[in-house]
Amino acid sequence: MGKGPILQAPETFFIAPLSRPAPGSVGKTGSWRTSKPVVYEDKCTGCMLCWLYCPENTILKTSNGKVAIDYDYCKGCGVCAAVCPFEAIDMVSEV
């Protein structure tokens, strides 16, 4: 160990093609949606399949062991509703 380089700040005007992970790298993608997933808490068993398959990471685990949707970013693909074995998520048109 200790054989890594010294990270030293550039001493001239410097912009490198660098990024850091952050939400919203193309904005609030909730605006892309044409229909939104709605969770029926009574039907949700907290199996977490929707959470597992969600391509966007916009299924939030709630304190009561169920799920909620992050509508700011959810693109409305409907994968969650399609994989739910209990029909606990409906896609509701927004247009």
């Binding site: 992970p21 952050a22 939400p23 919203g24 790298s25 193309v26 904005g27 609030k28 993608t29 892309w32 398959y53 969600c54 391509p55 966007e56 990471n57 916009t58 992050d70 700011d72 970013y73 959810c74 693109k75 409305g76 693909c77 409907g78 994968v79």
Partner: peptide
């Protein structure tokens, strides 16, 4: 953890972000 950050440029239903 947010291994995929919401609000990225993937198309809806993208298998790659999955």
């Amino acid at each position: 953890k947010k291994y995929i950050m919401p609000g990225n440029a993937a198309c809806p239903g993208c298998p790659e972000t999955m």
